[in-house]
Design a protein around this nucleic acid. Structure first.
Lengths: 378, 378
DNA sequence: ACTGTTGCCGAAACCGGTTTCGGAACCAAC
DNA sequence: GTTGGTTCCGAAACCGGTTTCGGCAACAGT
């Protein structure tokens, strides 16, 4: 679609910039020479190069990125396509994440172009468009899936990108990721040490690769704690409170319910609180829960949610740095970093106050009771 | 600072685009003519113009914004500089807000460039830089202050901008805003109707213009309810839970404490919950509270916070549309829109269970008691 | 029939950079 | 004193558009 007809624009009066010609005139050189000097071409003598650098710095010369782009195709801007859909995904971290990206970008005098989409297809379309319009030189891909169509698209277009998260096929992939598997592992061991023997795991969206990893970490933790995994105590695809509540409810109705829960996602874990209230169970004693993400909402729950918090700002900053290096041609093998989530100990976990056997009686008692009155939360 | 030397770039293989020359060749016209035809110059015959439009559409021609920018100075991108500082400001709404902006921008084939800053000075510097580098044709200014330096900067540079919020000096200002004053007014009347007679108001950051407006709305509400305002029941600069807690605590210790609170900011209102727990007061009955913003955290408090929710996505979308029209030269007088917040009735308000006199006894009893044990929240 | 207008388009300059190409100057070697 | 090879810079083309200017053809006026 062409942008319509009579789009007559108002003039923007802006301070006139110092151009490369200004610099070259001041130096008595041609603009071609100045350009080559500044861009590190080898056929410029050191003395001239230094002279050019000094003068252009003094004159405050800054090349106009879109003027360079016309020849180079590069804009010095990184693209970020956020997909907001059904569940709130990265909503809570967004501010920090963006702040980190922007900070990392501006370090190198780059900018950030963001766009949003509301479906996978929409996201791909948007990425493609940004690429076509040269509005982004490369992309940061948050929330990577096990098999990610964005990766396929960009790989095929041989356009630079960097993942926030990992993925199955790592060909051409650079990434930054938090070791969620380690966090899950630690969470299980912590609960086991507190005396829990029935530990449930409620995983996040199964399309995301982090789910694969976190499950692995959890299972490894169980193994080290000497607990045999029980398939009934593993749920998937819980990302919203409702999902978490459903999973919790189902597991509590087992003949041998868990006394502790590990959630792969904070927001899902918040659903447990609601179910606990329904059954009259105290979170942090009757029922323990540890989750992952560090969303602000967790701090406002009572008791506050023990969680593994990720530093989204750092993630953003590292991703920006990595992507810039990627655009500049560095090999992906050098561009893979990880970091750890940090445990925030709060009040939602602790030694169990009842055994699984005791718990099952409380739950069933409540179930019978609530068949008559319309079981309220209060 | 010049971007260093040997920044040798990797080639990006990208689908080759159809350029204006391709189109002009196909038509047997010069590229100048094609350009003028597409951009609505009057010296092109209707028949030619239509022919050009048809063919370029069929060929999928899309002008490269940075190629146009080199001559026009415009990139078709709107700038958004987010300031994250001390308190979390727009953190919770950011996702929706961005989504709205991005959506509004892409409607007209524009893009969004975002940057972040962590102080007022930093923000101004960033805006200036984006302007200098032509990375943004105009700016969306969220959280406008009564006297906003960003407005002064952009006004002086005669660069287009649009406010999210209003400000004192409206010269050259276009805006979109939510009528927070109406919300505050309605909140007061609602509480008054429930039977409250002592109604406190805890305002937000006093540098923001919304505080001026919301206070006005609140006072108007009191007036209509026939309640004389009490200066002791008005606090300011509460934007975080701690701030709200402090204000609440102070007012509860008055000889004649309020039974209801209106908060200008949700996050501050969450602090009241903590203080209520300290004093053993039940929110929603012993103490009523209504706030404003609609942050997700409010839904997770118990009881859930009654609040006036703002549609940030809509705000973003409208702002983008307004800014684009502004860049295209439309007069600011046509570019001023407002909308209303919508009341979300939840459990944090209701008829008072005690009079102010009764309340004061509960509070003082608790104060004495808590001098001995180390007063815990639990 | 001669002269102004007007409508419409081509030609060419321009925007601010990058990149290719060629040649002048200098040096060393034979 | 040629020749050959480097080193280093100027000249000019180029990128993909926009905008100014001028001129040709058609039309109207007298």
């Amino acid at each position: 679609m062409l942008n319509g007809q009579k789009e007559r624009n108002a003039p923007i009066r802006r301070a006139k910039r110092v151009t490369i010609s200004d610099v070259s005139n001041a130096l008595g050189l041609t603009k071609g020479t100045v350009s080559r000097a500044l861009n590190g071409y080898p056929d410029i003598s050191d003395s001239t190069r230094n002279r050019v650098r000094r003068v252009s710095e003094k004159m405050g010369y800054q090349p106009l990125s879109h003027a360079q782009a016309i020849k180079t195709g590069r804009t010095r801007s990184l693209g970020l396509v956020l997909q907001f859909g059904d569940h709130d995904s990265h909503r809570p971290f967004l501010a920090d994440f963006l702040s980190g990206i922007s900070h990392g970008a501006s370090q190198e005098n780059w900018t950030v172009t963001v766009a949003t989409a509301d479906s996978d297809g929409d996201t791909l379309k948007t990425v493609q468009q940004l690429l076509d319009e040269r509005k982004a030189d490369g992309f940061i891909l948050p929330r990577t899936m096990t098999d990610d169509p964005r990766v396929r698209l960009l790989r095929d277009a041989s356009a630079p990108f960097v993942l926030y998260g990992r993925t199955r096929d790592t060909t051409d992939c650079a990434w930054f990721d938090i070791l969620g598997e380690d966090a899950m592992h630690d969470a299980v061991l912590r609960l086991a040490k507190q005396g829990h023997e029935r530990i449930a795991f409620v995983n996040g969206g199964s399309e995301y690769y982090y789910s694969v990893l976190r499950l692995q970490g959890m299972l490894q933790g169980l193994k080290e704690a000497g607990i045999t995994p029980d398939p009934d105590l593993i749920a998937t695809d819980a990302v919203r409170p409702e999902d978490g509540a459903a999973a919790t409810r189902q597991m509590l109705r087992l003949a041998n319910p868990p006394t502790a829960f590990v959630f792969a996602v904070d927001m899902a874990a918040l659903g447990l609180y609601q179910v606990a209230a329904e059954y009259g169970l105290a979170v942090g004693s009757d029922l323990s829960v540890i989750a992952y993400d560090g969303v602000p909402e967790g701090a406002f729950a009572t008791p506050a949610l023990t969680t593994f918090s990720v530093d989204s700002r750092q993630a953003g900053e590292r991703l920006a740095a990595l992507l810039i290096r990627r655009v500049r041609g560095e090999a992906v093998q050098n561009l893979r970093e990880t970091a750890n989530a940090t445990l925030v100990e709060r009040g939602s976990d602790g030694p169990p106050t009842m055994t699984s056997n005791h718990l099952v009686r409380v739950v069933s008692a409540h179930s019978k009771k609530s068949e008559y009155p319309k079981g309220g939360t209060k």
